[in-house]
């Protein structure tokens, strides 16, 4: 009997230890990154780090603006492309399509969301880069190698589709059927019902799906890095190469020990990414919980 109680005690303590580990993990990540960035922050002001475009680590100049700008460009354009596509596809699958198609597509989308990002990157190199370089850029009278902000954005848009679509399908699934019946019984057409009632009812959920999609896209590393060119510059057009934050971190970890403050700068980059993404996640997850509570 005592042995059983003892096991119960040890086991519940172990459970608590594991849980605490995860509760403390973000805190540890945050603290660790702050500590490592300290070197950089003592020599530079925060605003000069963020808003200066002067990047030459060997001269101790660390302006993150080109990277931040690239990250924002590529993520925002990606979202602009994928947002309407996801919404329309979700509307079709959940409202117009026969039931079996929705049932079939749900796991398929789920599986596609699990395809590794490096595979999307390969597809980007094979299809999107030539498409941008040979077709889209000349069409707009631009010269581009193809490795560009636009290529990154297109790949990112496609990658985010399964992720966002999944969440949108869930949003539409949670709208009560009776709400649709109420609108239809007033003589509305199916589309009017979707437009005026479902989209409005699901507004918080849709917004959150987009928000989480944005944060996911912002942190995406390898696929974007493969097609965006990785040139340190403030991109002037979507056909220019860019260099987003995650790519900066991923590309330079090898040599960062050789230049003073460089490792600190990369950790500062990680910290920026971490803080922004954490904030977005907290905000939109909170919105989702709020809307589910109702």
């Amino acid at each position: 009997m005592t042995k059983r109680i003892l096991i119960d005690n040890i086991s519940s303590k172990w459970m608590l230890v594991c849980l605490s580990f995860f509760l403390l993990l973000p805190l540890a990540i945050g603290t660790g990154l702050v500590l490592k960035s300290e070197d950089l922050l003592t020599g530079h002001t925060l605003s000069s780090l963020i808003f200066s475009a002067d990047w030459s680590p060997s001269e101790d100049k660390f302006g993150f603006w080109p990277f931040i700008l690239s990250s924002l460009w590529v993520t925002i354009i990606a979202l602009i492309i994928s947002m309407p596509l996801c919404l329309l596809a979700a509307i079709y699958l959940s409202q117009f399509a026969p039931k079996w198609l929705l049932e079939f597509m749900r796991p398929v989308i789920d599986i596609l969301a699990g395809i590794p990002s490096v595979v999307y990157g390969v597809w980007g190199v094979l299809v999107i880069v030539p498409l941008v370089g040979d077709t889209i850029a000349p069409f707009f009278n631009n010269e581009s190698l193809g490795y560009s902000i636009l290529a990154g954005a297109l790949v990112l848009a496609v990658m985010s589709i399964p992720y966002i679509l999944n969440m949108l399908l869930e949003v539409f699934r949670q709208v009560p059927v009776e709400l649709g019946e109420a609108s239809l019984s007033l003589g509305a057409t199916k589309w009017e019902t979707i437009k005026h009632v479902f989209i409005r009812k699901g507004a918080t959920g849709i917004l959150s799906a987009y928000g989480l999609g944005f944060s996911k896209a912002l942190g995406e590393t390898i696929a974007v890095m493969m097609v965006i060119g990785n040139v340190v510059q403030e991109p002037a057009s979507v056909f220019d190469a860019g260099y987003p934050l995650p790519a900066l971190i991923a590309n330079n970890y090898g040599e960062m020990m050789s230049i003073p403050s460089y490792d600190s700068a990369l950790m500062f980059g990680s910290l920026l990414l971490f803080v922004i993404i954490l904030a977005i996640n907290i905000l939109f997850r909170y919105l989702i919980y709020k809307s589910e509570e109702k």
Binding site: I29, L33, R285
Partner: peptide, 22 residues
Amino acid sequence: VRFFLDVLWGIPSIVYGAFAFT
């Protein structure tokens, strides 16, 4: 706790990598 775990899910892998590296 569930909320927190969902948020944890959103942290990009590059940040995990960088942190582990330090």
